[in-house]
Design a binder for these strands. Structure first.
Lengths: 256, 256
DNA sequence: CGCTATTTGTGCGTATGTATC
DNA sequence: GGATACATACGCACAAATAGC
């Protein structure tokens, strides 16, 4: 049963705003930890006593703030447990990505169709069994003879046609996809971890086996947070380090 | 009269996308000039033969792209006739630093005065011979028994007094310095590289020697780009990875 | 000033499509 | 295939803001 109040009595906030605030609170408090799934929309309907329309509007707000990700057939998962506080609004960009590409050459060695098994689905953040095109190659900086990275690029099967264009133009792969298919990348996620370079990769990179390497994974998401492209780069530690600088400024209107 | 096609035949695009594209085209072509009002939602419903829900979803897309502005009681007015390029002013969450600290505990083991010799000056990006306070410790995540990182914190001698406060409060060290000395951090520089964990550090972190580690160095700069604090964290690869996510959006979304 | 018509905002109910497991 | 979950889409009703009379 839904209790409805005259909106004047209830802080004059729309219901979906109130629901969104409570959900944000529940995420921040750890009730819904990062990585977990929110209750399904219908469950939230009964929990809050509102219609599905209202729930969806509320979740949309969380999504716009980058707190959750929705996946049809799966659910709504928590991406982050708090929104941008003071120290975020930075002007240091991931938009250095285009430049990164301009200064480097990608030489592809292989292209094949793959189906995402369990571990690969984990990397690609996609459902099991989805079809992708995998393009493998080396990335060289400037005129260097030694590659700065081993690169695996995964492209969602729907956009696999651009595999022919990769390397032919000095454009990032995601830009090629955007232009070719008229879609828009809405989000970029970047993950960096360390690894020890195994024998096979060491040989290809011409480094000593057992030396350190940096794995930089970039995921590009389209309209509905569907993964479009995922690039996995393995850099020898002595040929690459990742750095960024951020100019801080206090946002004017802190708002809610 | 509403022509409805099976979505498979119609480019598999949702109706609201098609409506949005036609509206964008009509705006670009000058049929709806900048400053004019779009037809009311109900009028568009009959024009396109879709429900109001669909129209609103379509207009929402125009709004998100900064093309129109909606005003209750007035209508939907055209703000611009073409979309701005994105990729500027993305609100990037630089893996926000405050949270990192709130969820972890820093246990210090040592504190000493040091003078920056050649290699250390390189790390701190300061002149040789400058005096710093070095605080060494472990960082634990939540209630974990194993440390997630070995930490060296360097503090410019002028602010060395806060060494007593480190670990006593759940605040980042740079925040302590800011509060205590009334200064403001204006820039943060972050550098990430991979390394192989040596025997001594491996023992302290309780990992196998020769395993992979991530070195995250953060430098905090004050008013005149003077380095205030430098934190060097050595993370075992399997206990830490660095990720950040960036939501791209059109700059126009400012609204009132 | 109040009244009314118009327009967007909010909210409910329902049905069907589609992806995932 | 069936169950589940989000996506899309239809319909309706009323609220709130605005403009004009």
């Amino acid at each position: 049963m839904s209790l409805r109040f005259p909106s004047q009595l209830v802080a004059s906030q729309p219901q979906y705003v109130l629901v969104a605030q409570r959900l944000i609170g529940d995420i921040a408090s750890g009730r819904y930890p990062v990585g977990s799934l929110l209750p399904a929309e219908l469950a939230l309907c009964t929990q809050f006593g509102v219609s599905r329309h209202t729930i969806r509007e509320a979740i949309r707000r969380l999504q716009e703030r980058g707190l959750v990700r929705r996946q049809r057939g799966v659910g709504t998962s928590v991406k982050a447990n708090r929104m941008e506080s003071r120290y975020i609004q930075s002007t240091t960009q991931i938009s250095d990505l285009p430049r990164y590409v301009e200064d480097t050459r990608l030489v592809t060695t292989e292209a094949e169709d793959v189906v995402a098994d369990e571990p690969l689905a984990e990397i690609l953040k996609c459902p099991h069994g989805q079809r992708w095109v995998k393009v493998t190659g080396f990335r060289y900086a400037g005129k260097d003879k030694l590659p700065m990275a081993l690169t695996d690029i995964y492209i969602a099967a729907a956009y696999g046609g651009i595999r022919r264009l990769i390397g032919t133009m000095k454009l990032p792969v995601y830009t090629l996809i955007e232009k070719q298919y008229g879609i828009t990348i809405v989000e970029v996620e970047q993950e960096i971890r360390a690894t020890v370079i195994g024998a096979a990769d060491a040989k290809r990179l011409r480094v000593k086996p057992g030396s350190a390497g940096l794995v930089v994974t970039r995921r590009y998401f389209g309209d509905n947070d569907r993964p479009i492209e995922v690039a996995v780069n393995l850099h020898p530690a002595d040929r690459f380090s990742y750095s960024m600088s951020t100019r801080l400024h206090v946002p004017a209107g802190a708002e809610a």
